[in-house]
Amino acid sequence: MSEERTMNLTLKVWRQKNENEKGKFVTIQANGISSDMSFLEMLDVVNEDLTRKGEDPIYFDHDCREGICGMCSLHINGRPHGPKQGTTTCQLHMRSFHDGQTIVIEPWRAAAFPVIKDLAVDRTAFERIQQAGGYVSVNTGGVPDGNAIPIPKPSADEAFESATCIGCGACVAACKNASAMLFVSAKISQYALLPQGQAERYQRAQAMVEQMDREGFGACTVTKACEAECPVGIKLTNIARMNREYFNAKFFKEKTAHS
């Protein structure tokens, strides 16, 4: 690990009072930042400074700060979660930047993700997509035996990989079309691959895709930016699977029983 350095940075931060007011970039000086700080800790330092001066601190989303909750966002110098691959903003350290650098910090930009304030956006569109079908209905009864249902190892692994999606929205932020396909496809895949998900498999694909369209996310152009920027490495094969599931449901599956 490299030695701790202290650096002075120029931040260009998007400031916006609320959803309805127009925002603008504000230049803020961040001095005496340690290279060992995380990006969010750097913002904490800046915010303490702003508070002391009696100014409004920068509003941003964060929660676990361990890279697993998907709450932190931030579009840093043109990339979601900053310049490193496979990491969330809370796991991004200031050693990835150099002294005197200008850092542009913007919120996720998407019609479906309206700005709440400053850098925080409303990501409940993702929740509504999940609620449309991203679950397995479990009726009451005894707890089933852990290994009662055999699942092939490749399916279990693949489902697990899809299930690692933390729903941070970096895929939407990175996509030039603000498309949510990587997120939605991961959520469809994790159940499509498992026996527990079979009963609702085709309703799920239709309901989630339709909700995604209703929320106003863009279409996929296969630029693969989402895959490159995803902090947990969700694969593009998920999107192909979603397409398969959806077309299969729409073209070949019955909605109601034959009369």
């Binding site: 970039f25 043109g78 998407a110 030039k176 079309n177 498309s179 106003g216």
Partner: peptide, 21 residues
């Protein structure tokens, strides 16, 4: 047109060359 509507406010800084062709 549809995709443009999905992002009405663009980024000031967008490093598309870092993650796509």
């Amino acid at each position: 047109v549809y995709n443009r509507k999905a992002r009405p406010i663009g980024y000031a800084s967008f490093a598309g060359d870092k993650n796509s062709t």
